[in-house]
């Protein structure tokens, strides 16, 4: 069986898509926010692999084609952003201030909590790029001497939690302006959060996409400065 699966070209992608379909179905039927389709699909896929004792590498040898599409899809986020370019022009001061504050808050928060929990330097720099997109975050973590695989895991968990909590956090912090909502989501929960922003509206989605790129680039500089502090 394992021999067949490791040769199968379609197992990984099919399992991922079926899990997502099932997640979507349960989310619609129950209407419970925590039963998020992405979260459920991750859990279902892990469950199937664990129960069937199938290695992650066997799953990934097929599923990697889904990951392969991430770069072209991210490139396409420029289209909704371009369609909202007027907003970027009129609100650029607010957008810049918001993203810079978010990145600084992230780095400072990780610094303070690492001191509090007595993390090692390697653990500290592993968490520094936690809010930004995986591809940049892994690079930052590696360069500063962190555990890149752990950074990847934390970034994805952050994104999924951010995606699930976004509407709730907007209410709690009384963030009503669509531009501010998008910036908050993109800065705190990168591309996975952005998926929720896109659901919320065109402006939210465009601003969130913008925040992924800008906060990622600011974090590259900010994290290398912060890594000297602890």
């Amino acid at each position: 069986m394992t021999g067949f699966l490791s040769d199968s070209a379609f197992f990984g992608v099919t399992l991922s898509l079926l899990s997502y379909g099932l997640g979507l179905f349960i989310h619609k039927k129950t209407g419970i926010a925590v039963f998020h389709p992405l979260l459920l699909s991750i859990l279902f896929t892990i469950a199937v692999l664990a129960i069937g004792r199938i290695d992650y590498d066997i799953y990934y040898s097929g599923a990697k084609y889904l990951s392969w599409l991430l770069t072209p899809a991210t490139v396409c986020l420029a289209v909704p952003l371009y369609e909202k370019l007027e907003l970027l022009k009129s609100d650029w001061k607010a957008i810049t201030a918001g993203i810079v504050s978010g990145v600084f808050a992230s780095l400072l928060c990780v610094l303070l909590m690492s001191v509090f929990f007595g993390f090692t330097h390697a653990e500290y720099v592993t968490f520094l790029p936690k809010s930004i997109t995986t591809a940049i975050g892994i690079g930052v973590s590696e360069e500063l001497g962190g555990y890149a695989n752990l950074t990847a895991a934390i970034i994805i968990i952050t994104g999924v939690i951010g995606n699930v909590l976004a509407p709730f956090l907007c209410r709690v912090f009384r963030i009503t302006n669509p531009v501010a909502k998008g910036i908050a989501i993109g800065t705190s929960a990168h591309a996975v959060g952005t998926l929720k922003a896109i659901e919320m509206g065109e402006t939210e989605g465009a601003m969130s996409s913008l925040a992924i790129a800008v906060s990622g680039i600011i974090t590259v500089v900010g994290a290398s400065i912060f890594s000297q502090l602890y």
Partner: peptide, 20 residues
């Protein structure tokens, strides 16, 4: 650390953008 920093970043980025 993951949850608390997420909430703080969300609040900081959102509130500052909205205020400005």
């Amino acid at each position: 650390i993951t949850l608390i920093s997420l909430i703080i970043v969300f609040a900081a980025a959102g509130r500052v953008t909205q205020a400005v």
